[in-house]
Amino acid sequence: MDNALVIFFGADRVLFVFFGTEVYMTHLIGAVLYIVLAPFAGGLIAGLDRKVTAQMQGRHGPPILQPFYDVAKLLGKEKITVSNGQDFYVMCSLVFMVISGAFFFAGSNLLMTIFTLTAGSIFLVLAGYASNSPYAQLGAEREMLQIMSYEPMILLSAVGFYMATGSFNVGDIVTSGRFVFPYLAGMFAGYVFVLIIKMRKSPFDLSMSHHAHQELVKGLTTEFSGRTLALSEIIHWYENVFLLGFVFIFFANGEPRFIVLGVLVALVCYFVIVFIDNSFARMKWQFTLKSAWMVTLVFGGGNLFVLYYLRAVFQV
């Protein structure tokens, strides 16, 4: 196992065998680094997001550390909840989100990562349904619709990685020694498109929004308060770091310059998404579903077709 982290941590060795899979030192380090550092990175990204958004609107904006202040405050607020099931589901969602990201940064199987991520998203939808508030329930319905929109494209990207590198393992993909981006350019375009839906940015912020157009009050999170709301915010931080990590693996192949390129492109992608967020009004759900599936078909399916063609004709 020739992981990029070996560069920093020297020799790699098998620690233990987990259900027939050998777990390496670098696996554990990747997972632990994600679990510990992702909330800080995610919170900083959220703070930068708010600052950049404010600057785009000609405002001064809150401090960069504002999301941390918000979460610290929410953790200290009184606990009022309509149904206890809701808190349990949000906790489950956090657990699955962390496991999903840990799998990813441990260099594990990409498909398993995506399925765990979906479980996390579904638990958040259940939390929305748990309260009888019409706003939360409508938010949950819309969230499900968003999952339906982005899921096919994310799954197709995993298939694309398999076609291009011959492995579903993130560890093998980032150390393949092959610059896969030219082979997966269509997948990348499609993935960045659905990233807007996944990050709940305008024009696809149907289920909950941080903008003023809040006809659903706060959609999915309407009935969350205090600690539960703080947890849902932390889930969002973990999620964003994972999603940007997914952008990173389109570029990383083990060489340091491509690692730098991957990080830069991930940040540029986030900036572009914030820019789109600030320049569009919200679209209808029909547009979200249709456009996401069209993009999946054209960019994802088209890219897959090209990969098959290259493999069949040129044995690439």
């Binding site: 969350f224 308060s225 709301l229």
Partner: peptide
């Protein structure tokens, strides 16, 4: 609005009593 910009103090207009202080 940009003229007064309450958000620079971390103030958000939530529109939801369960989120508000």
């Amino acid at each position: 609005t940009p003229m007064y910009d309450l958000e620079r103090f971390g103030i958000v207009n939530t529109g939801n009593p369960k989120h508000a202080d």
